[in-house]
Simulated assay, not measured.
Amino acid sequence: MDRPLWNSKPTIDFRRCNPSLIFRIRFLSSRPTSESNSQKMEGSIVRRVIPSDNSCLFNAVGYVMDHDKKKASELRQVIAATVASDPTKYSEAFLGKPNEEYCAWILNPEKWGGAIELSILADYYGREIAAYDIQTTRCDLYGQMSPADGAPEEFDQTVFVVNRDRTIGAYESLALNLVKDQQRKRSYTDTANFTLRCGVCQIGVIGQKEAVEHAQATGHVNFQEYK
């Protein structure tokens, strides 16, 4: 599995979380719901902004699961414990770094999460997570599982019944429309073309590629985005 830049060597500290992901959490219900009934359901999909503090992925998951935007520290510990408990599954080849090193790395609040962390959290909560990338409108699924009962009823709904066709009916298109709207507004960080400044020597670079090249050449790994 390919790892994002911020999980590779050398580690790059961008000092800003990527706000380009929208999460949809599915709770899989064993009670069948017809497509026609689902289409009659009223509701809307909204984007909740999570502070860009390098732990936004964890706090976003904490919000949709527990309505708590300050779960990052706890969820990082969950991930570290899960990885440490199974060094065979979570090998260096899988993680991109030795198991013990990864566990220390993920506990650092300055480090970002990605596909591996979302997969672990989906299993931890027993939920299916759909992460939308606003820039491309791509939807990545984590934690696909068998149907189960017990969806909670919350005011800000983050849990939906899954139909027999594996969609959530009308909400599916609402979510995609929201992603496309955010894409038009460019509500994402274009990591290929954003401008960064080295926090050590103040040299400006463009995109992840130049940042990695600069880090490899100088050993400087502290970057800040600027407009």
Results as ranks from 00 to 15, higher is better:
Glu128Tyr: 06
Cys17Leu: 09
Gly143Cys: 02
Ser52Ala: 14
Ala104Tyr: 01
Asn59Met: 03
Leu107Ala: 04
Val61Cys: 01
Ala81Phe: 05
Arg24Lys: 11
Ser73Lys: 14
Asp66Tyr: 06
Asp123Arg: 08
Pro32Asn: 06
Cys17Thr: 13
Phe27Met: 04
Glu100Phe: 00
Asp86His: 08
Tyr124Glu: 02
Ser36Thr: 13
Arg127Ile: 04
Met145Glu: 13
Thr33Ser: 06
Thr88Ile: 10
Ile120Ser: 07
Ile134Thr: 04
Ser73Ile: 01
Glu35Asp: 07
Pro109Lys: 02
Asp123Met: 06
Arg16Leu: 05
Leu75Cys: 03
Trp105Thr: 06
Ile120Asn: 10
Asp133Lys: 05
Glu117His: 02
Ala60Met: 12
Pro19Tyr: 06
Tyr90Ala: 05
Lys71His: 01
Pro87Gly: 12
Ser91Asp: 14
Ser44Ile: 09
Val159Arg: 12
Ile79Pro: 00
Arg48Trp: 05
Ile129Tyr: 05
Phe27Lys: 05
Cys103Leu: 03
Ile50Pro: 00
Glu117Phe: 03
Val159Gln: 11
Ala151Trp: 07
Glu154His: 01
Tyr132Leu: 05
Ala122Glu: 06
Thr88Cys: 08
Arg127Tyr: 08
Arg15Trp: 05
Ala84Thr: 09
Asn108Lys: 13
Arg15Gly: 09
Thr33Trp: 07
Asp66Pro: 00
Asp66Glu: 14
Ser55Val: 13
Met65Lys: 07
Ser52Tyr: 10
Arg47Met: 06
Glu42Arg: 14
Arg31Val: 14
Lys69Val: 14
Glu92Pro: 00
Gly143His: 02
Phe94Ala: 12
Arg138Met: 11
